[in-house]
Design a binder for these strands. Structure first.
Lengths: 251, 251
DNA sequence: CGTATATGATTGTCGGACAATCGGACGCGA
DNA sequence: TCGCGTCCGATTGTCCGACAATCATATACG
Protein backbone atom coordinates (compact mmCIF):
# COMPACT_ATOMS: atom_id res chain seq x y z
CA UNK A 1 0.00 0.00 0.00
CA UNK A 2 2.76 2.39 0.84
CA UNK A 3 4.00 2.59 -2.69
CA UNK A 4 6.68 5.06 -3.48
CA UNK A 5 7.04 5.88 -7.12
CA UNK A 6 10.60 5.08 -7.99
CA UNK A 7 12.35 7.29 -10.44
CA UNK A 8 14.86 4.79 -11.63
CA UNK A 9 14.59 1.09 -11.82
CA UNK A 10 17.15 -0.72 -9.81
CA UNK A 11 20.43 -1.31 -11.52
CA UNK A 12 21.42 -4.90 -11.16
CA UNK A 13 24.79 -5.74 -12.61
CA UNK A 14 23.94 -9.31 -13.35
CA UNK A 15 26.83 -11.74 -13.44
CA UNK A 16 27.46 -13.28 -16.81
CA UNK A 17 26.69 -16.79 -15.66
CA UNK A 18 23.23 -15.69 -14.60
CA UNK A 19 22.62 -14.07 -17.93
CA UNK A 20 23.58 -17.29 -19.64
CA UNK A 21 21.15 -19.22 -17.48
CA UNK A 22 18.33 -16.78 -18.00
CA UNK A 23 18.87 -16.59 -21.71
CA UNK A 24 18.51 -20.34 -22.04
CA UNK A 25 15.63 -20.39 -19.60
CA UNK A 26 13.75 -17.80 -21.61
CA UNK A 27 14.09 -19.90 -24.72
CA UNK A 28 12.66 -22.90 -22.92
CA UNK A 29 9.81 -21.13 -21.16
CA UNK A 30 8.78 -19.33 -24.30
CA UNK A 31 8.38 -22.67 -25.98
CA UNK A 32 10.99 -22.07 -28.65
CA UNK A 33 12.92 -24.92 -27.11
CA UNK A 34 10.78 -27.93 -26.33
CA UNK A 35 11.53 -30.72 -23.85
CA UNK A 36 13.91 -33.15 -25.45
CA UNK A 37 15.44 -30.62 -27.80
CA UNK A 38 19.21 -30.68 -27.69
CA UNK A 39 21.02 -27.65 -26.42
CA UNK A 40 24.39 -27.05 -28.00
CA UNK A 41 27.60 -28.32 -26.56
CA UNK A 42 29.48 -26.19 -24.11
CA UNK A 43 31.85 -25.08 -26.82
CA UNK A 44 28.92 -23.99 -28.93
CA UNK A 45 27.40 -21.99 -26.12
CA UNK A 46 30.77 -20.42 -25.50
CA UNK A 47 30.77 -19.27 -29.08
CA UNK A 48 27.18 -18.03 -29.05
CA UNK A 49 27.37 -16.13 -25.78
CA UNK A 50 30.91 -14.99 -26.20
CA UNK A 51 31.94 -15.89 -22.67
CA UNK A 52 34.36 -18.29 -21.18
CA UNK A 53 33.56 -21.94 -20.79
CA UNK A 54 33.76 -21.76 -17.01
CA UNK A 55 31.09 -19.10 -17.13
CA UNK A 56 28.89 -21.16 -19.39
CA UNK A 57 29.29 -24.12 -17.13
CA UNK A 58 28.26 -22.18 -14.04
CA UNK A 59 25.19 -21.00 -15.87
CA UNK A 60 24.25 -24.44 -17.05
CA UNK A 61 24.58 -25.87 -13.57
CA UNK A 62 21.77 -23.64 -12.41
CA UNK A 63 19.32 -24.91 -14.97
CA UNK A 64 20.53 -28.44 -14.60
CA UNK A 65 19.81 -28.37 -10.89
CA UNK A 66 16.33 -27.09 -11.54
CA UNK A 67 15.64 -29.88 -13.99
CA UNK A 68 15.10 -27.47 -16.84
CA UNK A 69 17.99 -29.00 -18.72
CA UNK A 70 19.13 -32.57 -18.46
CA UNK A 71 22.06 -34.61 -19.53
CA UNK A 72 21.39 -37.82 -21.35
CA UNK A 73 23.58 -40.87 -21.14
CA UNK A 74 26.35 -39.17 -23.00
CA UNK A 75 26.18 -36.11 -20.77
CA UNK A 76 25.03 -34.01 -23.67
CA UNK A 77 22.61 -31.27 -22.81
CA UNK A 78 18.95 -31.33 -23.70
CA UNK A 79 15.85 -29.54 -22.53
CA UNK A 80 14.19 -31.31 -19.64
CA UNK A 81 10.72 -31.41 -18.16
CA UNK A 82 11.14 -30.85 -14.43
CA UNK A 83 9.10 -33.48 -12.67
CA UNK A 84 7.03 -32.87 -9.64
CA UNK A 85 8.90 -35.03 -7.23
CA UNK A 86 12.03 -33.08 -7.90
CA UNK A 87 10.29 -29.86 -7.00
CA UNK A 88 8.59 -31.55 -4.12
CA UNK A 89 11.93 -32.57 -2.72
CA UNK A 90 12.96 -28.94 -2.61
CA UNK A 91 9.68 -27.85 -1.14
CA UNK A 92 9.98 -30.54 1.46
CA UNK A 93 13.38 -29.30 2.44
CA UNK A 94 12.07 -25.79 2.69
CA UNK A 95 9.31 -26.94 5.00
CA UNK A 96 11.84 -28.65 7.20
CA UNK A 97 14.07 -25.61 7.31
CA UNK A 98 11.12 -23.42 8.17
CA UNK A 99 10.37 -25.81 11.00
CA UNK A 100 6.72 -26.33 10.21
CA UNK A 101 5.00 -28.56 12.69
CA UNK A 102 3.35 -31.91 12.21
CA UNK A 103 0.10 -30.23 13.14
CA UNK A 104 0.33 -27.92 10.15
CA UNK A 105 1.20 -30.91 8.05
CA UNK A 106 -1.75 -32.84 9.35
CA UNK A 107 -4.18 -30.00 8.76
CA UNK A 108 -2.98 -29.43 5.25
CA UNK A 109 -3.03 -33.10 4.41
CA UNK A 110 -6.58 -33.33 5.66
CA UNK A 111 -7.98 -30.68 3.37
CA UNK A 112 -5.85 -31.68 0.42
CA UNK A 113 -6.77 -35.32 0.72
CA UNK A 114 -10.45 -34.55 0.89
CA UNK A 115 -10.24 -32.27 -2.10
CA UNK A 116 -8.32 -34.84 -3.98
CA UNK A 117 -10.65 -37.74 -3.29
CA UNK A 118 -13.70 -35.69 -4.21
CA UNK A 119 -12.25 -35.27 -7.64
CA UNK A 120 -11.28 -38.90 -7.75
CA UNK A 121 -14.85 -39.94 -7.04
CA UNK A 122 -15.92 -38.14 -10.17
CA UNK A 123 -13.14 -39.25 -12.43
CA UNK A 124 -11.74 -42.57 -11.37
CA UNK A 125 -11.65 -45.27 -14.04
CA UNK A 126 -12.28 -48.97 -13.64
CA UNK A 127 -8.67 -49.71 -14.35
CA UNK A 128 -7.59 -47.44 -11.55
CA UNK A 129 -9.99 -49.11 -9.17
CA UNK A 130 -8.48 -52.44 -10.09
CA UNK A 131 -5.03 -51.17 -9.36
CA UNK A 132 -6.18 -49.83 -6.02
CA UNK A 133 -7.69 -53.22 -5.21
CA UNK A 134 -4.44 -54.89 -6.08
CA UNK A 135 -2.65 -52.51 -3.76
CA UNK A 136 -5.00 -53.41 -0.93
CA UNK A 137 -4.42 -57.11 -1.51
CA UNK A 138 -0.69 -56.53 -1.38
CA UNK A 139 -1.12 -54.61 1.84
CA UNK A 140 -3.09 -57.46 3.36
CA UNK A 141 -0.37 -59.86 2.37
CA UNK A 142 2.23 -57.68 4.05
CA UNK A 143 0.18 -57.35 7.19
CA UNK A 144 3.11 -57.89 9.53
CA UNK A 145 5.70 -55.87 7.71
CA UNK A 146 5.16 -52.30 8.76
CA UNK A 147 7.76 -50.84 6.42
CA UNK A 148 6.15 -52.44 3.41
CA UNK A 149 2.70 -51.38 4.51
CA UNK A 150 3.86 -47.80 4.81
CA UNK A 151 5.29 -47.94 1.31
CA UNK A 152 2.12 -49.43 -0.10
CA UNK A 153 0.04 -46.86 1.74
CA UNK A 154 2.05 -44.11 0.14
CA UNK A 155 1.53 -45.71 -3.25
CA UNK A 156 -2.19 -46.04 -2.58
CA UNK A 157 -2.59 -42.37 -1.90
CA UNK A 158 -0.52 -41.33 -4.85
CA UNK A 159 -2.78 -43.44 -7.04
CA UNK A 160 -5.80 -41.74 -5.52
CA UNK A 161 -4.38 -38.37 -6.41
CA UNK A 162 -3.69 -39.34 -9.96
CA UNK A 163 -7.28 -40.48 -10.23
CA UNK A 164 -8.32 -36.92 -9.42
CA UNK A 165 -6.69 -35.74 -12.64
CA UNK A 166 -5.65 -32.36 -11.41
CA UNK A 167 -1.98 -31.78 -11.69
CA UNK A 168 -2.06 -28.51 -9.82
CA UNK A 169 -3.50 -30.25 -6.81
CA UNK A 170 -1.12 -33.11 -7.31
CA UNK A 171 1.85 -30.78 -7.18
CA UNK A 172 0.37 -29.02 -4.18
CA UNK A 173 0.05 -32.29 -2.31
CA UNK A 174 3.39 -33.78 -3.05
CA UNK A 175 5.45 -32.01 -0.39
CA UNK A 176 3.01 -33.00 2.33
CA UNK A 177 3.02 -36.55 1.05
CA UNK A 178 6.75 -36.71 1.19
CA UNK A 179 6.73 -35.61 4.77
CA UNK A 180 3.72 -37.41 6.15
CA UNK A 181 3.99 -40.82 4.61
CA UNK A 182 7.42 -41.65 5.96
CA UNK A 183 6.18 -41.01 9.44
CA UNK A 184 3.31 -43.36 8.72
CA UNK A 185 5.62 -46.09 9.76
CA UNK A 186 5.96 -44.62 13.22
CA UNK A 187 2.23 -44.02 13.39
CA UNK A 188 1.48 -47.63 12.46
CA UNK A 189 3.73 -48.89 15.17
CA UNK A 190 1.78 -46.85 17.71
CA UNK A 191 -1.12 -49.27 17.92
CA UNK A 192 -1.31 -52.99 17.19
CA UNK A 193 -4.55 -52.47 15.31
CA UNK A 194 -2.92 -49.93 13.00
CA UNK A 195 -2.56 -52.14 9.94
CA UNK A 196 -6.11 -53.45 10.25
CA UNK A 197 -7.61 -50.00 10.48
CA UNK A 198 -5.49 -48.86 7.59
CA UNK A 199 -6.62 -51.71 5.41
CA UNK A 200 -10.23 -51.19 6.35
CA UNK A 201 -10.00 -47.50 5.50
CA UNK A 202 -8.42 -48.25 2.16
CA UNK A 203 -11.15 -50.75 1.40
CA UNK A 204 -13.86 -48.28 2.23
CA UNK A 205 -12.19 -45.57 0.21
CA UNK A 206 -12.12 -47.75 -2.86
CA UNK A 207 -15.70 -48.74 -2.19
CA UNK A 208 -16.63 -45.05 -2.12
CA UNK A 209 -15.02 -44.59 -5.47
CA UNK A 210 -16.87 -47.57 -6.85
CA UNK A 211 -20.17 -46.17 -5.61
CA UNK A 212 -19.18 -42.63 -6.57
CA UNK A 213 -20.18 -41.63 -3.06
CA UNK A 214 -18.49 -38.39 -2.07
CA UNK A 215 -19.85 -38.30 1.47
CA UNK A 216 -18.55 -41.73 2.17
CA UNK A 217 -15.21 -40.86 0.65
CA UNK A 218 -14.91 -37.78 2.80
CA UNK A 219 -15.90 -39.63 5.94
CA UNK A 220 -13.34 -42.36 5.46
CA UNK A 221 -10.61 -39.99 4.46
CA UNK A 222 -11.14 -38.12 7.69
CA UNK A 223 -11.25 -41.31 9.69
CA UNK A 224 -8.11 -42.59 8.02
CA UNK A 225 -6.20 -39.46 8.82
CA UNK A 226 -7.44 -39.27 12.37
CA UNK A 227 -6.19 -42.81 12.80
CA UNK A 228 -2.85 -41.66 11.56
CA UNK A 229 -2.82 -38.85 14.07
CA UNK A 230 -3.78 -41.13 16.93
CA UNK A 231 -1.06 -43.56 15.99
CA UNK A 232 1.38 -40.71 15.78
CA UNK A 233 0.51 -39.57 19.27
CA UNK A 234 0.43 -43.07 20.66
CA UNK A 235 3.91 -43.54 19.34
CA UNK A 236 4.95 -40.83 21.78
CA UNK A 237 5.48 -38.16 19.16
CA UNK A 238 4.38 -34.57 19.53
CA UNK A 239 2.20 -32.99 16.87
CA UNK A 240 3.63 -29.58 17.63
CA UNK A 241 7.18 -30.58 17.06
CA UNK A 242 8.73 -29.36 13.84
CA UNK A 243 8.95 -31.93 11.13
CA UNK A 244 12.48 -33.07 10.65
CA UNK A 245 14.23 -35.38 8.34
CA UNK A 246 14.87 -37.86 11.10
CA UNK A 247 11.29 -38.69 12.00
CA UNK A 248 10.14 -38.23 8.45
CA UNK A 249 13.11 -39.06 6.36
CA UNK A 250 12.41 -37.34 3.10
CA UNK A 251 15.13 -38.92 1.07
CA UNK B 1 3.88 -53.77 -7.30
CA UNK B 2 5.86 -55.39 -10.06
CA UNK B 3 9.12 -55.06 -8.27
CA UNK B 4 12.13 -56.69 -9.78
CA UNK B 5 14.86 -57.42 -7.32
CA UNK B 6 17.96 -55.80 -8.69
CA UNK B 7 21.18 -57.62 -8.17
CA UNK B 8 23.44 -54.62 -8.23
CA UNK B 9 22.80 -51.12 -7.11
CA UNK B 10 23.39 -48.56 -9.76
CA UNK B 11 26.89 -47.27 -10.05
CA UNK B 12 26.90 -43.52 -10.17
CA UNK B 13 30.27 -41.91 -10.47
CA UNK B 14 29.28 -38.58 -9.05
CA UNK B 15 31.09 -35.55 -10.38
CA UNK B 16 33.12 -33.66 -7.85
CA UNK B 17 31.00 -30.53 -8.08
CA UNK B 18 27.93 -32.52 -7.09
CA UNK B 19 29.72 -34.00 -4.15
CA UNK B 20 30.68 -30.53 -3.03
CA UNK B 21 27.07 -29.42 -3.28
CA UNK B 22 25.73 -32.43 -1.45
CA UNK B 23 28.30 -32.21 1.28
CA UNK B 24 27.30 -28.65 2.06
CA UNK B 25 23.63 -29.48 1.69
CA UNK B 26 23.91 -32.30 4.18
CA UNK B 27 25.43 -29.97 6.71
CA UNK B 28 22.58 -27.55 6.31
CA UNK B 29 19.74 -30.06 6.33
CA UNK B 30 21.13 -31.83 9.33
CA UNK B 31 20.98 -28.58 11.22
CA UNK B 32 24.68 -28.36 11.89
CA UNK B 33 24.67 -25.23 9.76
CA UNK B 34 21.83 -22.88 10.58
CA UNK B 35 20.34 -20.18 8.35
CA UNK B 36 22.54 -17.13 8.53
CA UNK B 37 25.67 -19.05 9.37
CA UNK B 38 28.57 -18.08 7.16
CA UNK B 39 30.00 -20.65 4.83
CA UNK B 40 33.67 -20.28 4.16
CA UNK B 41 35.06 -18.35 1.24
CA UNK B 42 35.66 -20.12 -2.00
CA UNK B 43 39.34 -20.40 -1.20
CA UNK B 44 38.50 -22.01 2.08
CA UNK B 45 36.20 -24.55 0.49
CA UNK B 46 38.89 -25.28 -2.06
CA UNK B 47 41.20 -26.11 0.80
CA UNK B 48 38.67 -28.21 2.69
CA UNK B 49 37.41 -30.24 -0.24
CA UNK B 50 40.73 -30.42 -1.99
CA UNK B 51 39.33 -29.55 -5.38
CA UNK B 52 39.78 -26.72 -7.77
CA UNK B 53 38.04 -23.43 -7.35
CA UNK B 54 36.09 -23.86 -10.58
CA UNK B 55 34.73 -27.09 -9.20
CA UNK B 56 33.77 -25.48 -5.93
CA UNK B 57 32.06 -22.67 -7.77
CA UNK B 58 29.99 -25.05 -9.88
CA UNK B 59 28.92 -26.83 -6.74
CA UNK B 60 27.99 -23.64 -4.96
CA UNK B 61 25.93 -22.44 -7.88
CA UNK B 62 23.62 -25.38 -7.42
CA UNK B 63 22.85 -24.56 -3.82
CA UNK B 64 22.73 -20.87 -4.53
CA UNK B 65 20.07 -21.38 -7.16
CA UNK B 66 18.01 -23.42 -4.76
CA UNK B 67 18.21 -20.70 -2.14
CA UNK B 68 19.97 -22.96 0.31
CA UNK B 69 22.94 -20.66 0.33
CA UNK B 70 22.84 -16.93 -0.27
CA UNK B 71 25.25 -14.17 -0.87
CA UNK B 72 24.90 -11.08 1.23
CA UNK B 73 25.79 -7.60 0.08
CA UNK B 74 29.42 -8.46 -0.05
CA UNK B 75 28.77 -11.61 -2.03
CA UNK B 76 30.05 -13.70 0.81
CA UNK B 77 28.34 -17.01 1.25
CA UNK B 78 25.97 -17.81 4.06
CA UNK B 79 23.29 -20.38 4.71
CA UNK B 80 19.95 -19.23 3.40
CA UNK B 81 16.35 -20.03 4.17
CA UNK B 82 14.73 -20.77 0.81
CA UNK B 83 11.58 -18.74 0.68
CA UNK B 84 8.31 -19.99 -0.64
CA UNK B 85 7.96 -17.65 -3.54
CA UNK B 86 11.24 -18.82 -4.90
CA UNK B 87 10.08 -22.40 -4.87
CA UNK B 88 6.72 -21.31 -6.16
CA UNK B 89 8.37 -19.71 -9.14
CA UNK B 90 9.90 -23.03 -10.04
CA UNK B 91 6.69 -24.89 -9.46
CA UNK B 92 4.87 -22.38 -11.58
CA UNK B 93 7.27 -22.94 -14.41
CA UNK B 94 6.83 -26.66 -14.11
CA UNK B 95 3.09 -26.28 -14.33
CA UNK B 96 3.46 -24.21 -17.45
CA UNK B 97 5.81 -26.71 -19.02
CA UNK B 98 3.44 -29.54 -18.19
CA UNK B 99 0.71 -27.56 -19.91
CA UNK B 100 -1.83 -27.75 -17.13
CA UNK B 101 -5.11 -26.10 -18.02
CA UNK B 102 -6.83 -23.15 -16.46
CA UNK B 103 -9.58 -25.54 -15.46
CA UNK B 104 -7.22 -27.54 -13.31
CA UNK B 105 -5.93 -24.30 -11.90
CA UNK B 106 -9.43 -23.10 -11.14
CA UNK B 107 -10.42 -26.33 -9.45
CA UNK B 108 -7.33 -26.42 -7.30
CA UNK B 109 -7.66 -22.79 -6.35
CA UNK B 110 -11.23 -23.38 -5.31
CA UNK B 111 -10.48 -26.11 -2.82
CA UNK B 112 -7.31 -24.50 -1.56
CA UNK B 113 -8.97 -21.14 -1.05
CA UNK B 114 -11.81 -22.67 0.88
CA UNK B 115 -9.47 -24.67 3.04
CA UNK B 116 -7.39 -21.63 3.67
CA UNK B 117 -10.24 -19.33 4.63
CA UNK B 118 -11.71 -21.90 6.96
CA UNK B 119 -8.53 -21.80 8.93
CA UNK B 120 -8.43 -18.03 8.71
CA UNK B 121 -11.89 -17.80 10.23
CA UNK B 122 -10.58 -19.57 13.28
CA UNK B 123 -7.31 -17.77 13.62
CA UNK B 124 -7.48 -14.30 12.18
CA UNK B 125 -6.45 -11.48 14.49
CA UNK B 126 -7.94 -8.02 14.76
CA UNK B 127 -4.83 -6.50 13.33
CA UNK B 128 -5.10 -8.68 10.26
CA UNK B 129 -8.72 -7.71 9.81
CA UNK B 130 -7.69 -4.06 9.93
CA UNK B 131 -5.10 -4.65 7.27
CA UNK B 132 -7.65 -6.41 5.10
CA UNK B 133 -10.01 -3.47 5.55
CA UNK B 134 -7.27 -1.11 4.49
CA UNK B 135 -6.69 -3.20 1.42
CA UNK B 136 -10.37 -3.00 0.52
CA UNK B 137 -10.35 0.78 0.89
CA UNK B 138 -7.34 0.98 -1.38
CA UNK B 139 -9.13 -1.21 -3.89
CA UNK B 140 -12.15 1.07 -3.81
CA UNK B 141 -9.93 4.05 -4.40
CA UNK B 142 -8.38 2.36 -7.41
CA UNK B 143 -11.74 1.41 -8.84
CA UNK B 144 -10.87 2.39 -12.40
CA UNK B 145 -7.37 1.06 -12.51
CA UNK B 146 -7.64 -2.61 -13.29
CA UNK B 147 -3.96 -3.34 -12.98
CA UNK B 148 -3.83 -1.90 -9.49
CA UNK B 149 -6.97 -3.74 -8.48
CA UNK B 150 -5.49 -7.02 -9.63
CA UNK B 151 -2.37 -6.35 -7.59
CA UNK B 152 -4.39 -5.46 -4.51
CA UNK B 153 -6.55 -8.53 -5.00
CA UNK B 154 -3.48 -10.69 -5.03
CA UNK B 155 -2.27 -9.01 -1.87
CA UNK B 156 -5.66 -9.51 -0.25
CA UNK B 157 -5.62 -13.22 -0.82
CA UNK B 158 -2.08 -13.61 0.34
CA UNK B 159 -3.06 -11.87 3.56
CA UNK B 160 -5.96 -14.25 3.93
CA UNK B 161 -3.64 -17.19 3.63
CA UNK B 162 -1.24 -15.88 6.19
CA UNK B 163 -4.17 -15.50 8.56
CA UNK B 164 -4.73 -19.23 8.24
CA UNK B 165 -1.34 -19.84 9.85
CA UNK B 166 -0.54 -23.02 8.03
CA UNK B 167 2.65 -22.79 6.11
CA UNK B 168 2.20 -26.13 4.42
CA UNK B 169 -1.01 -24.92 2.90
CA UNK B 170 0.58 -21.61 2.13
CA UNK B 171 3.32 -23.29 0.18
CA UNK B 172 0.81 -25.50 -1.55
CA UNK B 173 -1.21 -22.51 -2.68
CA UNK B 174 1.56 -20.32 -3.91
CA UNK B 175 2.02 -21.78 -7.37
CA UNK B 176 -1.66 -21.51 -8.14
CA UNK B 177 -1.65 -17.96 -6.85
CA UNK B 178 1.19 -17.04 -9.08
CA UNK B 179 -0.65 -18.35 -12.07
CA UNK B 180 -4.20 -17.31 -11.33
CA UNK B 181 -3.80 -13.82 -10.02
CA UNK B 182 -2.03 -12.40 -13.03
CA UNK B 183 -4.89 -13.49 -15.21
CA UNK B 184 -7.23 -11.74 -12.80
CA UNK B 185 -6.54 -8.65 -14.79
CA UNK B 186 -7.98 -10.24 -17.91
CA UNK B 187 -10.91 -11.61 -15.94
CA UNK B 188 -11.71 -8.20 -14.51
CA UNK B 189 -11.74 -6.67 -17.94
CA UNK B 190 -14.31 -9.22 -19.04
CA UNK B 191 -17.23 -7.48 -17.39
CA UNK B 192 -17.76 -3.83 -16.44
CA UNK B 193 -19.13 -4.88 -13.07
CA UNK B 194 -15.98 -6.85 -12.31
CA UNK B 195 -14.40 -4.45 -9.84
CA UNK B 196 -17.67 -3.93 -7.98
CA UNK B 197 -18.27 -7.61 -7.54
CA UNK B 198 -14.68 -8.12 -6.47
CA UNK B 199 -14.94 -5.41 -3.84
CA UNK B 200 -18.23 -6.74 -2.58
CA UNK B 201 -16.80 -10.23 -2.28
CA UNK B 202 -13.80 -8.96 -0.39
CA UNK B 203 -16.04 -7.02 1.96
CA UNK B 204 -18.14 -10.06 2.67
CA UNK B 205 -15.10 -12.23 3.18
CA UNK B 206 -13.74 -9.88 5.79
CA UNK B 207 -17.16 -9.70 7.36
CA UNK B 208 -17.19 -13.50 7.58
CA UNK B 209 -13.89 -13.41 9.38
CA UNK B 210 -15.19 -10.79 11.75
CA UNK B 211 -18.23 -12.92 12.54
CA UNK B 212 -16.16 -16.09 12.51
CA UNK B 213 -18.74 -17.52 10.15
CA UNK B 214 -17.32 -20.40 8.17
CA UNK B 215 -20.39 -20.99 6.04
CA UNK B 216 -20.47 -17.41 4.95
CA UNK B 217 -16.76 -17.48 4.23
CA UNK B 218 -17.12 -20.57 2.08
CA UNK B 219 -20.07 -19.16 0.20
CA UNK B 220 -18.35 -15.95 -0.68
CA UNK B 221 -15.12 -17.64 -1.58
CA UNK B 222 -17.01 -19.78 -4.06
CA UNK B 223 -18.91 -16.82 -5.41
CA UNK B 224 -15.71 -14.81 -5.75
CA UNK B 225 -14.01 -17.53 -7.71
CA UNK B 226 -17.01 -18.20 -9.90
CA UNK B 227 -16.98 -14.51 -10.73
CA UNK B 228 -13.38 -14.87 -11.71
CA UNK B 229 -14.21 -17.76 -13.96
CA UNK B 230 -17.08 -15.93 -15.60
CA UNK B 231 -14.89 -12.92 -16.23
CA UNK B 232 -12.25 -15.19 -17.64
CA UNK B 233 -14.71 -16.71 -20.06
CA UNK B 234 -16.30 -13.38 -20.92
CA UNK B 235 -12.86 -12.12 -21.82
CA UNK B 236 -12.89 -14.71 -24.57
CA UNK B 237 -10.42 -17.04 -22.92
CA UNK B 238 -10.77 -20.79 -22.84
CA UNK B 239 -10.64 -22.63 -19.52
CA UNK B 240 -9.25 -25.70 -21.21
CA UNK B 241 -6.31 -23.95 -22.70
CA UNK B 242 -2.98 -24.61 -21.06
CA UNK B 243 -1.79 -21.87 -18.78
CA UNK B 244 1.01 -19.98 -20.35
CA UNK B 245 3.25 -17.20 -19.32
CA UNK B 246 1.63 -14.82 -21.75
CA UNK B 247 -1.89 -14.85 -20.37
CA UNK B 248 -0.66 -15.32 -16.86
CA UNK B 249 2.70 -13.69 -16.82
CA UNK B 250 4.41 -15.33 -13.92
CA UNK B 251 7.36 -13.02 -13.66
C1' DC C 1 35.44 11.60 16.55
C1' DG C 2 34.09 11.36 11.87
C1' DT C 3 35.86 10.85 7.21
C1' DA C 4 38.72 9.82 3.33
C1' DT C 5 42.10 6.69 1.72
C1' DA C 6 45.09 2.71 1.29
C1' DT C 7 45.38 -2.21 1.54
C1' DG C 8 44.30 -6.83 1.45
C1' DA C 9 40.90 -10.35 0.57
C1' DT C 10 37.38 -12.19 -2.38
C1' DT C 11 34.71 -12.79 -6.34
C1' DG C 12 33.73 -12.89 -11.40
C1' DT C 13 35.78 -13.86 -15.53
C1' DC C 14 39.19 -15.35 -18.57
C1' DG C 15 42.57 -18.40 -21.25
C1' DG C 16 44.62 -22.62 -21.62
C1' DA C 17 45.47 -27.41 -20.47
C1' DC C 18 44.78 -32.54 -19.89
C1' DA C 19 42.67 -37.09 -18.59
C1' DA C 20 38.47 -39.67 -18.89
C1' DT C 21 34.70 -40.86 -21.34
C1' DC C 22 31.38 -41.20 -25.12
C1' DG C 23 29.72 -41.73 -30.04
C1' DG C 24 30.65 -43.32 -34.18
C1' DA C 25 33.51 -45.17 -37.83
C1' DC C 26 36.24 -48.93 -39.06
C1' DG C 27 37.83 -53.46 -39.58
C1' DC C 28 37.65 -58.39 -38.43
C1' DG C 29 35.94 -62.95 -37.75
C1' DA C 30 31.95 -66.17 -37.46
C1' DT D 1 24.91 -60.33 -42.31
C1' DC D 2 25.78 -59.91 -37.62
C1' DG D 3 28.42 -59.42 -33.48
C1' DC D 4 32.72 -57.75 -31.53
C1' DG D 5 36.90 -55.27 -30.58
C1' DT D 6 39.58 -51.13 -31.75
C1' DC D 7 40.60 -46.57 -32.91
C1' DC D 8 39.71 -41.58 -33.25
C1' DG D 9 37.54 -37.25 -32.73
C1' DA D 10 34.45 -34.70 -29.77
C1' DT D 11 32.97 -33.48 -25.31
C1' DT D 12 33.02 -33.14 -20.52
C1' DG D 13 35.08 -32.84 -15.79
C1' DT D 14 38.74 -30.98 -13.58
C1' DC D 15 42.75 -28.38 -12.91
C1' DC D 16 46.07 -24.32 -13.11
C1' DG D 17 47.18 -19.65 -13.25
C1' DA D 18 45.89 -14.93 -13.98
C1' DC D 19 43.67 -10.27 -13.55
C1' DA D 20 40.16 -6.53 -12.93
C1' DA D 21 36.46 -5.09 -10.04
C1' DT D 22 34.61 -4.90 -5.74
C1' DC D 23 34.17 -5.24 -0.81
C1' DA D 24 35.90 -5.13 4.23
C1' DT D 25 38.82 -3.36 7.09
C1' DA D 26 42.43 -0.78 8.93
C1' DT D 27 44.80 3.44 8.75
C1' DA D 28 45.78 8.23 8.37
C1' DC D 29 43.94 12.66 8.29
C1' DG D 30 41.12 16.70 9.36
Amino acid sequence: MSEVVEKFSRITPMPAYQMVAEAIEREILSGRLKPGDPIGTEAELVRQFGVNRSTVREGIRLLEHGGLVQRDSSRRLSVGLPHYDRLATRATRALVLHEVTFRELFEATMVLSIASIELAVERVTQEEIDRLDANIRATEAARDDIATIAALDSEFHIMLEKAGRNRVLELAREPSNMLIHPSTQAALGGTPYGPDRLIEAHRMLVESLRRRDKDMARTWTRRHLVDWRKGFEKAGLDLDQPVDLVTARAD
